[in-house]
Structure formats: C-alpha cells, structure tokens
Simulated assay, not measured.
Amino acid sequence: MPLLDKMLALAMAAQVLLTLGLLVWMGRERVPRVVRGEIRVADIAVEKDAYPLKARLLSNSFDNQFQLPLLFFVGALTALLFGLLDWFTVGLAWLFVFLRYVHAAIHVTTNRVYRRFTAYVAGLAVLALFWLWLVLRLLLAPSV
C-alpha cells in the first residue's frame, strides 16, 4: 500500500478511534447509573435529560461525530478510489481529524461554547477546503 494511502487510512482510523472512545466513555458514565437505579430506563427511553451533565455532554459529542466526519469519510474514500492523494490532501485530512479531537475535548470538558464553535468552524473550513481540493483534482485529472 502506498504511503499516502496509509496516511489517509490512519487519519480515518484516528477519527474512528475518537468516536469509539467517546462511546466507551459515555457508556461508563451512563450504564452504571442505570444499573444502580439512579436513573430509570423509562426516564431515558426518549430523552437524555435524566442523565447528569457529563453524560449528556459525552452523548452530544458522540452524536456530533456522525455529522461533519461523515463528509470527511466520503471524501477520503473518494480520494482513495480515484487515486487523488497528495500530501496536501493527507495534511488536510489530519488537520480535520485534529480539529475534531479539539472540538470533542472542549465539548466534554469546559464546554465553552465560543471555543467549541471556533474549533467546529475551523474543522468545517478545513473540510470545505479538503472537498474543494478534491473536486479540483477530479476535474483536472486526466480521463482514464
């Protein structure tokens, strides 16, 4: 496997690791409370409000990993499929994933909304540039 393919695959794996890490952390916050009877299942069947703040923050951050990252995964797979990888694309991929970690870290710790929003917008800008670069490479690529 070419180095650039590996580097992009590792960026994708790092994003998956973030998502799974949040899922495990969220489970460790939520499940024991239900098992101990602190929270009734009926109270969480539809809404998350019965959970303490930390569990809700983790849940929101986990849910957020299925928004912008979905567009990242589609773009990364498109780049791999069409052989459009270069160091710039891989760099943007890693920068996007790094910003997702920053966003999640803010989300589940201080949850300072303006900082979290800044990290989100920065990630969105990197993702938009990633896609713009990908589309340009697709348009300019020689026909097969």
Rank of each mutant, 00 (worst) to 15 (best):
L8Y: 10
A93G: 01
F72W: 10
F88Y: 15
F96Y: 06
G83T: 10
S61Q: 12
A122N: 05
N111Y: 00
F96R: 08
V102W: 03
A9Q: 14
L127Y: 11
V144K: 07
V97A: 03
F88H: 13
F130Q: 07
L71P: 08
R137I: 10
L80D: 09
R30L: 04
D63G: 11
A122L: 15
A76W: 00
N60W: 03
V16K: 02
V41Q: 14
F82L: 15
L134D: 05
L3H: 12
P32H: 01
A55K: 01
L4Y: 08
R28C: 06
S59G: 15
V41S: 12
V46H: 08
R36V: 05
L10M: 12
Q65L: 03
A14N: 01
R40E: 15
L17P: 02
A11F: 04
A119M: 05
F66L: 07
L3G: 05
L92C: 13
A79E: 11
S61T: 14
F130W: 08
F72Q: 01
A76Q: 02
F72R: 04
L84A: 10
D43N: 08
F62G: 00
L132H: 04
L80Y: 13
L23W: 11
V41T: 14
L127E: 06
R28H: 13
N60Y: 00
A128S: 12
V113M: 14
K48R: 14
G37F: 14
V31A: 06
L129E: 04
Y114K: 07
G123V: 11
G123E: 02
N60M: 10
F62P: 00
D63I: 08
L53S: 09
V102P: 02
M12T: 12
F117V: 15
G27K: 13
L10S: 11
V35A: 09
T109P: 01
A125C: 13
Y114Q: 08
V121F: 12
V35H: 04
L99G: 01
T109R: 03
L3S: 09
K48Y: 14
M1P: 06
L84G: 01
V16S: 06
F66M: 02
Y101P: 01
K48T: 12
P52I: 00
L85G: 09
A141I: 08
L84M: 11
D5C: 07
V108S: 05
Q67K: 12
V126H: 03
L53D: 15
T118F: 15
L139F: 13
D63E: 12
L77Q: 10
K6C: 09
A128D: 04
E38M: 11
V31E: 10
D63W: 08
V144F: 15
A76N: 06
L4Q: 06
L129V: 09
Q65T: 04
L140N: 14
A122Y: 01
L57N: 04
V97M: 02
